[in-house]
Design a protein around this nucleic acid. Structure first.
Ligand code: MN
Ligand code: MN
Length: 560
DNA sequence: TCCGCGCTAG
DNA sequence: TTCACACGCTCAA
DNA sequence: GAGCGTGTGTCTCTAGCGCGGAAC
């Protein structure tokens, strides 16, 4: 009996939970996406539907496991009972087949070292105890056919091998249901177990994630390419990288979300092209990407190649319409460096508006943020917390919960989302502007502390991209709202709305809360050898511009 | 004999 | 298996 | 100081198992 069940962490699942989940998923996909399935995929599912229950159970059990080949003798499912009788209809429906061939990899994953050695004792000798890779190499050296090997193993061990068909189809169904390849049927279980709970938002039935078979296929190709790129990391062979780059350039889709995915992938591969000394390949990829930081990287490559004039011209074009603040800042820095190099001109950078406080602490153990927090706590603050992005992001999530989870068309496709599909897209605010403005007015008029505490008790525990519930507790919300003036909170929220993706990062490390309104400070802690990152600098300047007490706390080690 | 890893299941 | 952050290095100025 | 690579922790759960391999 698992510990979790004893602890009462979640309700027990019904005995056939996996079958029910799979069939529920299939009903949705059948209703929404049947037209995107190939005839054979659809036919497979119709054959599945016609199976007796035990066979359906066995299929779902196995198709969700690693497979696709299994040893029948190793299968034990009390709720299914006799495996052979459950298997027969599966085989009749071509959803499983007797597996007559056994390659070396499959041999190794299905059979233990001892079993393999026993079966080949005659040829390989009994004396040594080679490790498994060595043993498999030796077996491969026997040059037995896959068919003969399957037969020999099954005879020797009185075993039966089966292959489950339809794994690709089932993966496709999950992709269609979730609209991403990150989630799976596991999410059904985690939700039922209470490990993760999801807000009961309204689903948008009208809009589909994938509008055509082509979009799905390209998504899967991009996924496969990303996989190959991840695998490339340990070999780092230049020719392979060139192939990856070419394949990435070959991907195209008319779906915006798939295109975004492709462009991000191009950026990642291009970055490795830079590292691998393939600047021209990198440029080619960056030119065909509309996701930050493609243009910034493109500019850096041009600079490194010594193409100063071209770089300057390009920087000018970027700055006419920057994609985001981060790009604007980076490109401005590079442009001024280039100008200085050519003309010797020295452009003046706008001064920082925040100040830096130096703090001398005795050398000791623990992270510098914690040490600084303890020292500040001793100065009499009611509460000093290392919150980083969690505080403002969390208060934002509480304040705009209903707007975040509002039924905007295309926002929610399935019941396991922690936010709308367009949460971090540039038009998030645009598509909800009236509701957001109304909510802001409402927040201005109400008792904010009571309102946000009400939101905590209403929403606590539900998954939300903005809220880390370990940090956002009633006590913190109460203290923060009491101390931080409303006009500061509104300004912070507007900045988050302005660019939710970029601005959820870079917020100061520490928040210091006192007992009364206005008594608070925000500090970005910097130890020796650590420097402000550009987005941290932008947040600090913004906070100071709106009148918030924010700055850098520079820690130096030494005796006071 | 013990430890670490991948996999499974709820 | 990503993402955000810190750290420590090199290079140029 | 700018830029880079790298390390660390991290809400993509968690206990239990079978196995392989190394320690003993
Ligand atoms: Mn920090
Ligand atoms: Mn810091």
């Amino acid at each position: 009996m698992p510990e979790a069940a004893i602890a009462g962490a979640g309700p027990a699942l019904p005995p056939l939970y996996y079958l029910h989940n799979f069939e529920a998923l299939w009903r949705v996909v059948d209703a929404r996406y049947a037209d995107l399935l190939l005839p054979e995929e659809l036919a497979q599912m119709r054959r599945f539907e016609a199976l007796p229950r035990a066979a359906r159970c066995l299929f779902v059990r196995l198709v969700l496991r690693v497979g696709p080949v299994f040893r029948v003798g190793r299968l034990h499912y009390p709720e299914i009972g006799d495996i052979d009788s459950a298997l027969a209809p599966l085989i009749d429906s071509d959803l499983a087949s007797d597996c007559a061939a056994l390659d070396i990899d499959t041999l190794g994953s299905l059979f233990t070292r001892a079993e393999i050695q026993r079966c080949h004792a005659v040829e390989l000798g009994e004396g040594q105890r080679p490790n498994k890779p060595t043993l498999l190499m030796a077996v491969a050296g026997l040059e037995e056919s896959d068919a003969a090997r399957a037969q020999r193993l099954c005879a020797a061990l009185d075993e039966r091998l089966i292959r489950i068909e339809g794994g690709d189809t089932v993966r496709l169904l999950q992709l269609l249901f979730f609209g991403n390849s990150r989630q799976s049927l596991v999410d059904f279980v985690l939700s039922d177990l209470g490990v993760a709970s999801y807000w009961p938002y309204a689903l948008s039935k009208a809009q589909r994630v994938f509008s055509s078979r082509g979009a799905v296929d390209v998504y899967r190709q991009a996924d496969a390419l990303a996989e190959r790129h991840a695998l490339w990391q340990d070999g780092r062979d230049r020719d392979t990288l060139r192939t990856l780059a070419a394949d990435a350039l070959g991907l195209a889709s008319d779906s915006d979300s798939v295109v975004r995915r492709i462009h991000r992938l191009r950026n990642r591969i291009a970055r490795d092209c830079e590292r691998a000394g393939l600047p021209d390949t990198a440029l080619e990829l960056y030119v065909h990407s509309e996701q930050h930081p493609a243009r910034e990287r493109r500019l850096r490559v041009l600079e490194a190649q010594g193409a100063t004039d071209e770089a300057l011209a390009f920087a000018g074009r970027v700055l006419v319409q920057p994609w985001c603040e981060d790009e604007q800042a980076a490109v401005t820095t590079i442009r001024q460096r280039l100008l200085r190099r050519i003309h010797g001109t020295r452009a003046l950078r706008r001064r920082d508006r925040f100040s830096t406080r130096e703090m001398r602490l005795p050398p000791g153990t623990g992270r510098v943020e914690r040490r600084a927090a303890e020292a500040l706590q001793a100065e009499g603050w009611l509460s000093v917390r290392h919150v980083e992005n969690a505080l403002f992001n969390g208060l934002f999530g509480l304040a705009f919960w209903d707007e975040v989870f509002a039924a905007v068309p295309g926002a929610f496709h399935h019941p396991f989302q922690a936010g709308p599909a367009d949460m971090f897209r540039s038009d998030f605010q645009l598509r909800r502007r009236p509701a957001l403005e109304r909510r802001l007015q409402q927040l201005a008029a109400c008792d904010l502390e009571a309102e946000l505490l009400r939101m905590v008790s209403r929403c606590a525990g539900y998954q939300c991209r903005w809220i880390d519930w370990r940090v956002i507790t009633p006590a913190l919300v109460q203290d923060a709202v009491r101390c931080i003036p409303f006009r500061h909170l509104v300004a912070v929220w507007r900045r988050l709305l302005f660019d939710p993706r970029e601005n959820r990062r870079g917020q100061p490390d520490l928040v210091l809360l006192g007992g009364r309104a206005g008594e608070y400070q925000l500090w970005e802690v910097k130890g020796p050898g650590d420097a402000l990152q550009p987005h941290q600098r932008r947040w600090l300047n913004y906070l100071c511009d709106i009148g918030a007490p924010a700055g850098v706390l520079k820690v130096v080690w030494g005796d006071a």
